[in-house]
């Protein structure tokens, strides 16, 4: 089992400034899953609870001279502490001579002090002007063949795409709004309609607090808003939409929703919300443009899947 690659400048920037800070908020520990062509950072994919998040990178977006081999179809997966990874990366960068350009990352087995058993590390190596620096980040033992297979299936299972996606309103204001909502309740109803409406509501015995965003951009199945709905309350509008089959509603944890919005630290250009068929989960897709264009950057992607809370109804 071998993994060795050099991080590109673009890759360093992406990881250090955007991806790692965002993913760290999602959860300290994640799986790093490496294949011949892609690298994935995966949260909670092997557990039932929690926000599933998938950050996928083509190898070219992060690395050059990418070499991987394993007897499991050249796939390697292990778990890693993101804040340690982030710290190690920053410390290497601080010492690195930016002209030398070579920042090596590799998987090694080392004998830690006071131990007789070698344990795996993800190691960064860089050469500075007069010095060289090596940072070892402890990682878990590689996942078993069965677990890797399960991870692989979980990544692939994202094919169950929502029929309708609506573009999120400005993320920073949505983020601060949901931050405030956290104080009011734990469960949030989220509705997405084919008319381009996104409705968020917390309802407790003491308060109903919500936000309705209308006329958002729609991807996938769409429908024209019904004129007679205009004078109605947001809640009634959602109910009517659901009855007509033009809207879907699910209940999710406010904390999960807030976590998924933390991905805005990765500086996406926009985000889309959608509800998977049969209300299986709420999905949030973050879209990144090739810098200076309005063209989607296909070399990496980030999305979250929020588990739906069972409310006992419908």
């Amino acid at each position: 089992m071998k993994f060795k690659a050099f991080l590109t400048d673009n890759g360093i920037n992406l990881l250090e400034k955007r991806i790692l800070p965002a993913l760290d908020k999602m959860g300290r520990v994640c799986h790093l899953y490496l294949t011949r062509d892609h690298a994935f950072f995966l949260h909670n994919l092997l557990s039932v609870d929690g926000v599933h998040s998938v950050a996928q990178f083509s190898k070219e977006s992060l690395f050059h001279d990418y070499r991987i081999s394993s007897n499991n179809d050249d796939r390697i997966a292990f778990s890693v502490d993101l804040s340690l990874l982030h710290r190690a990366l920053r410390s290497v960068l601080a010492v690195r001579d930016s002209n030398s350009n070579a920042l090596l990352i590799k998987l090694v087995k080392k004998l830690p002090p006071n131990s007789t058993q070698a344990t795996p590390f993800l190691t960064f190596e860089a050469r500075g002007h007069r010095s060289a620096v090596v940072q070892d980040v402890p990682v878990s033992k590689p996942l078993s063949r069965a677990d890797v297979h399960e991870l692989h299936l979980a990544v692939e299972s994202c094919e169950q795409l929502p029929a309708t996606l609506v573009m999120a309103p400005e993320l920073s204001s949505l983020h601060s709004f949901v931050d405030g909502m956290k104080h009011v309740g734990d469960v949030m109803g989220v509705s997405v309609s084919k008319y381009g409406d996104l409705h968020l509501q917390i309802s407790t015995s003491l308060i109903a607090l919500g936000a309705e965003f209308r006329k958002l951009k729609v991807l996938g199945e769409r429908a024209d808003p019904v004129a007679e709905d205009n004078g109605l309350s947001a809640k009634t509008r959602v109910e009517r939409g659901v009855q007509r089959g033009d809207a879907m509603s699910v209940q999710v944890s406010v904390k999960h929703f807030f976590k998924s919005l933390q991905c805005s630290l990765a500086k996406p250009d926009c985000a889309f919300f959608g509800i998977a068929p049969q209300g299986a989960c709420l999905m949030v897709f973050f879209q990144f443009f090739v810098p200076g264009t309005r063209v989607t950057d296909k070399s990496f992607s980030l999305h979250c899947k929020l588990p739906v809370l069972d409310t006992g109804s419908s």
């Binding site: 607090l209 936000a211 209308r214 006329k215």
Partner: peptide, 11 residues
């Protein structure tokens, strides 16, 4: 804003 409304009903 006509297209984005935050609302609350406090008991």
């Amino acid at each position: 804003s006509p297209d984005a409304c935050i609302y609350a009903e406090i008991r």
